[in-house]
């Protein structure tokens, strides 16, 4: 991350704030900073989203391509994550400087989306064993203000929610080769089911307590952080908003520990529990925002802001 210089006194101030559950910007330990989300910002991509979490700015574009399915998974599509750390965020990322961070984030996303409980790759199948959709999820990091993983996972889920796959009109089978005809009508398309797509939550251990959504300064004070990824909840993305009784619990899809410190088993267990609770809260907020935007889109009330706001 961007190099940030903090004096021992400044660190002490942050540490005491976390201990007393009142952080330097007035939040409690479980509060998130304000977020701005807009989908459909890049017209050349099939789906896109821009998320700004305080100073962290993420732009995600999803591009689709027709590909051959893997031999061992004939009925499944493919997902590929690519992270680009733009030099706009910090001059350190110039050239190939951001590659290490980019790889670690894309690996983490790949792991979180790997389970079929998190994202159903079957919906990307066109013709079993012959053709499938491959989604390129390109993540562009434009500014780093701490808590990249959470912001990236939120933006990716929003972009996937916004992704439209063109409908397949006809498929001709000609001597083993499949010839697909895609619909030309931009409104004739299929949306993806991303209700269960996972969100990541970073928990930073500062002193004896864990905080969510650490700012860049707080990340600097922490010796160890825990990233918990858990699946979303279907009921959050239902338009009729009926609370089903069969509400499934979030399942943990990935856990990563970063940093030089270590954790006792009991603290670890508590932290994971806290992380899953935070995921459920975030997922609910994201679901509400996405549903509202879709409603505005249908009623033609949506105004496109992009970066001009």
């Amino acid at each position: 991350m961007a190099n940030l210089l903090l004096s021992p006194l400044e660190k002490m101030y942050i540490l005491h704030g976390v201990r007393d559950d009142c952080r330097s910007d007035g939040r409690t330990n479980i509060d998130y900073r304000p977020m701005e989300l807009e989908t459909d910002v890049v017209s050349h991509a099939s789906g896109s989203a821009r998320l700004r979490l305080a100073n962290t700015d993420i732009l995600v574009g999803v591009k689709t391509e027709i590909d051959l399915p893997n031999n061992d998974q004939p009925g499944y599509g493919k997902l590929e994550f690519f992270v680009d750390c733009s030099a706009n965020a910090t001059p350190e990322f110039e050239g190939r400087g951001g590659e290490q961070l980019a790889n670690s984030i894309s690996n983490m996303m790949q792991k979180a989306y790997q389970s079929s409980d998190a994202f159903d790759l079957k919906q990307l199948c066109i013709f079993e064993g012959k053709q499938c959709w491959k989604l390129y999820i390109d993540i562009l990091i434009l500014e780093c203000g701490g808590n990249l993983c959470d912001a990236v996972s939120l933006a990716v889920k929003a972009a996937l929610y916004n992704t439209r796959l063109p409908s397949v009109k006809t498929a001709l089978l000609d001597g083993g080769n499949v010839d697909l005809q895609l619909s030309d009508d931009p409104y004739d398309n299929k949306l993806l089911n991303v209700d269960l797509a996972p969100l990541l939550v970073t928990l930073c251990k500062i002193g004896d307590k864990f905080v969510v959504d650490p700012s860049a300064e707080e990340e600097n004070c922490s010796v160890i952080s825990l990233i918990v990824g858990a699946t979303g909840n279907k009921t959050n993305y239902n338009i009729d908003n009926k609370k089903n009784e069969s509400c499934t619990d979030s399942k943990c899809t990935t856990i990563v520990m970063n940093g030089s410190g270590s954790l006792a088993p009991k603290t670890l267990k508590n932290a994971i529990k806290q992380g899953i609770e935070a995921v459920q809260f975030l997922d609910q907020a994201l679901g509400q925002a996405l549903l509202r935007e879709r409603r505005e889109n249908v009623t033609m009330k949506k105004y496109s802001y992009g970066f001009l706001k």
């Binding site: 690519f82 680009d84 390109d138 562009l140």
Partner: peptide
């Protein structure tokens, strides 16, 4: 100066 294009910026990825 550094000029870069996002991977999703063009028609083809």
């Amino acid at each position: 100066c550094q000029y870069s294009m996002a991977t999703f910026s063009t028609g083809e990825r």
